[in-house]
Write a protein that binds this DNA or RNA. Structure first.
Length: 457
DNA sequence: GTAGGGTTAG
């Protein structure tokens, strides 16, 4: 009895340390526990597996599974569910599927959590078709979809460009009286907003209140963001009063949304006030909060403050790098921006195109021959380019009157199906005509027409 | 031990 109780206490302690991201401490508690005769159980190890999956990586989590086996304990469904989700979290989908198979071979029956996790992972990794196969497998295993399953489905449908089907599923659930929660409403409202069906999203927002639900911070942040996205800043900000009136908690998500909108509106002082409030209200701030703060510093010209903030943030992401490169460029620190880009390249992180686009744009805006040459060299080295990369370079070349080079770049963009703004197309065409490159201008015109009728790949 | 909202270039 004493031993069972102490194991339970140890598990509570381990869970609490894992929540506080103090994994090393949690491990020490287990080691001390064993030394004092307290035997860890499956729950102890599952807590560690889940924390390693979330904070470190799936391979490290799997090492815990080995230790678990050494202690004579068999991993259970919960262990595998954590591993499957953890693998997907670290973008190792094939690892998730292998674990699903391994689970079968170990004689463990996947439960609805396993299927839900797998469904979520497949949608998130961009494999909606595979997700539907998992749904069929779930039905074959006689596991009825739960409200969580439907939420995952609605979210997955929205994020894979099928908001219409998501809405149809929602209306079906409504007809058959299947329970729908606030999460369902929030998910669908966001999905509709993000694919431009804002009117239907607002109808649903009104319906939500009529169904007896009270909108929460997620609902309001979603709605605010939809206004900001369409440039309706004042309408978005008017929701702030509503949030406060309803007594909803303002969390880090809401603060970041509002602060970023205020920055875009040029209202730096108000953004600073909200930022201060966020620091006071939200406790530990995550990478997104720091990204928002760093962005504000750059927009205020406080470059040193922005760089100092890097010492406070636990980890940086693609957004941080983009904000840094753009901020350095816009504050005339192009050499520093370039060093950062080179550093990122040595770290093998060239998949993020945004910082390259920012840098190429800054070079082109300088209007110097050597800067545009450098932009051109960098452009040619990039394996992936998008509409923004082409647009920046074309504007830079046009500014310098280098229309023959612009012609070559633009033809290559059009042939690859890259959309270019009408203003850029006009500038290059007009430039070619003004320099009497009539044949090139005609050729470009015909490429533009052809591109209009080319089907996407 | 599952599901929803936030940050970057224009």
């Amino acid at each position: 009895m004493t031993c069972r109780l102490s194991t339970r206490l140890m598990n509570i302690c381990v869970a609490s340390l894992c929540r506080a991201r103090r994994l090393g401490m949690a491990e020490l508690v287990v080691i001390d526990g064993i030394r004092m005769g307290c035997i860890p159980d499956v729950v102890t190890y599952n807590t560690l597996v889940s924390a390693y999956c979330r904070l470190v990586g799936v391979d490290e989590a799997y090492l815990v599974v080995h230790r678990m086996r050494e202690m004579g304990l068999k991993p259970d469904v919960v262990t595998y569910n954590s591993l499957i989700t953890g693998a997907a979290r670290w973008r190792r989908l094939s690892c998730s599927l292998d674990l699903f198979e391994e689970m079968h071979q170990a004689g463990l029956q996947p439960d609805s959590w396993t299927y839900n996790n797998l469904l979520h992972c497949l949608f998130k990794s961009g494999y909606p078709d595979l997700a539907f196969r998992v749904l069929t497998a779930m039905e074959s295993a006689n596991l009825a979809p739960s409200s969580t399953t439907y939420n995952i489905l609605i979210n997955g449908l929205c994020k894979s460009g099928n908001a219409g089907s998501a809405l149809a599923l929602f209306r079906y659930l409504q007809r058959v009286g299947s329970p729908r929660g606030l999460v369902t409403y929030n998910t669908l409202i966001d999905g509709l907003c993000k694919c431009g069906r804002v009117g239907e999203a607002r109808t649903l927002f009104r319906e939500l209140a009529g169904s007896g639900f009270i909108p929460n911070a997620v609902t309001y942040t979603t709605m605010m963001k939809s206004y900001f996205r369409s440039g309706r800043f004042e309408e978005g900000l008017s929701m702030l009063d509503e949030i406060r009136r309803e007594g909803s908690r303002f969390d880090a998500f809401a603060y970041c949304t509002v602060i970023s909108a205020l920055i875009k509106m040029g209202k730096m002082e108000e953004a600073s006030d909200f930022l201060e409030e966020m620091h006071g209200q939200c406790g530990t701030l995550d990478t997104v909060c720091y990204n928002t703060h760093i962005n504000l510093c750059f927009k205020q010209g406080k470059v040193d403050d922005a760089l100092d903030l890097l010492n406070k943030v636990d980890e940086i992401d693609d957004y941080t790098v983009s904000i840094l490169v753009d901020g350095l460029c816009k504050n005339n620190r192009l050499p520093d921006a370039y060093h950062l880009l080179k550093y990122m390249a040595t770290m093998g992180s060239q998949s993020n195109l945004v910082p390259y686009n920012c840098f190429i744009q800054a070079l082109c805006k300088q209007g110097k021959v050597e800067s545009v040459d450098f932009a051109m060299t960098l452009f040619n080295k990039l394996e992936i380019k998008d509409s923004f990369t082409y647009t920046s370079l074309l504007r830079g070349l046009s500014k310098m009157g280098r229309f023959l080079e612009a012609f070559t770049v633009m033809v290559s963009a059009l042939r690859q199906g890259v959309c270019l703004p009408r203003s850029v197309r006009r500038v290059v065409l007009a430039g070619l005509r003004s320099l009497r490159y009539k044949v090139h201008a005609r050729k470009l015109r015909s490429e533009i027409v052809k591109a209009k009728f080319r089907l996407p790949d």
